[in-house]
Design a protein around this nucleic acid. Sequence first.
DNA 1: GTGGTCTAGACCACT
DNA 2: GTGGTCTAGACCACA
Lengths: 126, 126, 126, 126
Amino acid sequence: MEFHLRGDSPIYLQLVHTISDAVVRGELKPGDRLPSQRDVAAKARVNPNTVQRAFMELERLGLTETRRGEGTYVKLDQEQAQVLKEQAARDAWQQFLARLAAVGYSENEVRTWVAHQMKPDGRKNV
Amino acid sequence: MEFHLRGDSPIYLQLVHTISDAVVRGELKPGDRLPSQRDVAAKARVNPNTVQRAFMELERLGLTETRRGEGTYVKLDQEQAQVLKEQAARDAWQQFLARLAAVGYSENEVRTWVAHQMKPDGRKNV
Amino acid sequence: MEFHLRGDSPIYLQLVHTISDAVVRGELKPGDRLPSQRDVAAKARVNPNTVQRAFMELERLGLTETRRGEGTYVKLDQEQAQVLKEQAARDAWQQFLARLAAVGYSENEVRTWVAHQMKPDGRKNV
Amino acid sequence: MEFHLRGDSPIYLQLVHTISDAVVRGELKPGDRLPSQRDVAAKARVNPNTVQRAFMELERLGLTETRRGEGTYVKLDQEQAQVLKEQAARDAWQQFLARLAAVGYSENEVRTWVAHQMKPDGRKNV
DNA sequence: GTGGTCTAGACCACT
DNA sequence: GTGGTCTAGACCACA
C-alpha cells in the first residue's frame, strides 16, 4: 500500500482515508492483516504515534479490529464495504452539486456542464 | 446574507466562503459594501475577532478592499468573478472524479453512474 | 474537581470516569465549561496529552463538546444523565451478581448474604 | 471446564479467573489435576504461551503447584478456598457500593434500590 | 514483535 | 489562552 501524504489535512486522517479506501475498494478483505503500525510508520515516514492514532480511528469506524500483541485485522465485510462505496459516491456527487449551486449554477446549467464534461471526444475535459 | 455554520472546518473559513460565493455568484457586485464586521458577528453569532480574520482573508484573496472608517467593499470585477466561478466548477468536478476513483470506480462506471444521476425522470437524483 | 489516580487502569480512562461520573451525578450540568486541558493536567499532575486523550474520549461518548480555541463544554442533558446513572446501577448490580455466582453462591445464598449486609444494626457491614 | 473469553481484559487473566473460580467453588479440589496447558490452549483457542502465563500466575497465587513432567495440581485446601470465596463476595459488594456512590446514590437510596432488586416477586430482578 | 500508554516538548490553528 | 497535531522516545503488556 502506498501512502501519499499531502499537506492540507491531518496526517492521521490521510492515513485513515488511504486505508479505508483500500478496504472500500475491496483491496483489503475481511480477515486481512494490516501491516504493523511500525511498518506503516516506516513506509509513510511518520511517527508511530501518528499511525496509532489512525489505527484507533479505523477501529472506531468499525473497519478494523486490533488484537493486542497480534496485529490489526480488517473486520468490515464485503457487503458493508459495498455500501460504503456507494455512499461515498453519493456523498461526492452531492458535494459536487452543492458546490456548483453555491457559486450560482442553476440545475440546467449543471446538467449541460456535466454533459459536456462527459463527452468522450470532448478534448481534454480537464 | 445568511450564515450557516457547520462544525468541520474553521469558522472564519466558512465565513470567507459564504461571502466569496456571494461575490462569485454576482450577488455582491464590485463597489458593493459588505455588512460591517460587527453586523456579521452578530448575525452569525461568532466572535468579532473571527469575523475580522475572515475579512482579512477576503482582502488577501483580492475579493474585497477595506477603507478605514468606511467599511469593506467588493473589489473583484464581474469578469474575474466569472473566472473564479468556472474554476470552482472544474475543481469540484475534479474532486468528484478523484473521490470516485479512490473508492474504486472505473472511468466507465463513473460515466454510467453520472448518466444515471442526470436522468431527469430518474426521480430522486438528489 | 478532585482527581484521585490509582495504578490499575490507564490514567486517561480514570480521568474519563472521574469526569463522566461528575456529569452523571449532575454535578456538572449541560453547558458547563470544563477546566481547560492544561488546568486538568496541572491539577492531576499528568501530561497534557494524557488529558487530551481523556477529553477526546468524553466527546466520543457524547458527554461533552469541545470548541476549538474556546474550551470543552458539557453536552449531555440531565435526562440522559439520569439514564446513564440508572444504567450504571444496573450494571454494577449485574456485575455483583455475576461475580458471586462465579464463585459458587446460589441465588438463595446471595439473597441471605445481601440481606445481612443491609442490616443497619449489623455493625460495620464492611 | 468452559472458557468464555471476552475482549476487555487480558486473555491470560481471564484464564486465571476461570480456573481460580473453579477452585474457589470447590469444583476443583486439592490434588485434582488441571487439564494440560496444551489442552487448555486447544479448548480456549488461544496461544499456548498465553496459557503458560496463566498457569504461572495461578502458581504464583498459591492455588496450584506444577510438577515437572506430571502436570499441574490444585494445592489450595478447602478451608483456604472458603476464605477466598467470602473475600470475593465482600470485594464484589464493596465494588458495587463504591460504584453507586460514585454516580451519586446516597446510602439510603442504595438500600431502597437493593431492596427493590431483591424482591422475589419483582420479576425481572436480573 | 505487536499494540498500548505515557511523557516531554514543539508548533500550529482558532477564538 | 484554548484545543489540535505531531515528533521523539521510553516503557509496558500481551501473544
